[in-house]
Computed example of a mutant assay.
Amino acid sequence: PSCPPSSSEEDIEVNDPLLRFFEHCEKFVALVEENATAMHQVEAFKEGPEMRRVLERVAGALCLPADELNADLVQVAFLTCSYELAIKNVTSPWCSLFSEEDAKVLEYLNDLKQYWKRGYGYDINSRSSCSLFQDIFRQLDKAMEESKSSKPISSPVIVQIGHAETLQPLLALMGFFKDEEPLRANNYARQAQRKFRSGRIVPYAANLVFVLYHCDHAKTSREEYQLQMLLNEQLLPFHHSNQTLALYADLKDYYRDILQNCRFEEECELPRSNNTAADEL
């Protein structure tokens, strides 16, 4: 017989519906993931003047006719450069093909994709993560109630492991890194100072931490429990106050609508109409 699992293995739970919510959300899958028109801003940027200039420069460096290259091929070369630099800390020969301006254009191309597929482009991108958001606050509520009752905290640390596709929608649901003007194919220059930069928001080993504090010397009961968030080990100012420490009660008030009214089944239900996916988007 096989050896029984260790206690640490027994504590591990695979919960794809919670952390890979995007795969279980019919509306997201149909209207974004599998909808050929959902990424029209991305495709338009690939054919736009900024990408044409990149193609011409790269083609010139390779001594190739520009019409033998396309945006997808150039992006593969750029990603190869960036992967080797990030993972191996070496400068790939592919990097020599790109100028700093080329890198900015290709960064914007990737940000466009993340914006429209995982960020603010469509409401369902973020609304599909509300079950995860609510679960986080249920765990925080439980810890607070145990603390109030002077009980040991049953789960002082909860670790949930997902991907960038998990974090990006959750951060959008909470309102972080939202620009006044949506990212589009025709506003590259105006977005030079944009907040939404996926490479900074969800880099390798991206992580989001919620820390609940019990303040013994709080003046009021409302001030007794406070919360901080850290994104990639850096304190994250809250959207509603621009402060890095918030009263837990205030935070729940601010997100009351999501906590009480965002229901995964309803959000992810496909519309029962004759409209096409493009019409819905």
Results as ranks from 00 to 15, higher is better:
residue 114 Q to L: 12
residue 175 G to W: 12
residue 151 K to A: 12
residue 107 E to W: 09
residue 42 V to Q: 02
residue 170 L to M: 03
residue 65 P to V: 01
residue 37 T to L: 13
residue 115 Y to M: 06
residue 223 E to P: 00
residue 17 P to D: 05
residue 96 S to D: 13
residue 4 P to K: 09
residue 93 P to Y: 05
residue 93 P to S: 05
residue 116 W to T: 03
residue 40 H to P: 05
residue 8 S to R: 13
residue 226 Q to F: 02
residue 37 T to M: 12
residue 205 A to C: 12
residue 49 P to C: 09
residue 166 T to C: 00
residue 214 H to F: 00
residue 166 T to M: 00
residue 100 E to S: 10
residue 242 N to H: 15
residue 33 E to Q: 15
residue 4 P to E: 08
residue 116 W to N: 04
residue 269 E to N: 04
residue 194 R to F: 07
residue 214 H to W: 02
residue 103 A to S: 15
residue 33 E to A: 15
residue 128 S to W: 02
residue 42 V to S: 02
residue 261 N to C: 08
residue 259 L to D: 07
residue 268 C to G: 01
residue 220 T to W: 04
residue 182 P to I: 09
residue 263 R to T: 08
residue 277 A to C: 13
residue 36 A to E: 15
residue 245 L to D: 13
residue 259 L to V: 08
residue 27 K to A: 05
residue 53 R to M: 13
residue 242 N to K: 15
residue 164 A to R: 01
residue 38 A to G: 09
residue 140 L to E: 09
residue 234 Q to G: 10
residue 230 L to S: 06
residue 81 C to G: 07
residue 213 Y to V: 00
residue 241 S to Q: 12
residue 231 L to I: 08
residue 74 V to Y: 05
residue 153 I to E: 06
residue 132 L to D: 03
residue 116 W to Y: 12
residue 127 R to W: 07
residue 48 G to C: 12
residue 154 S to V: 01
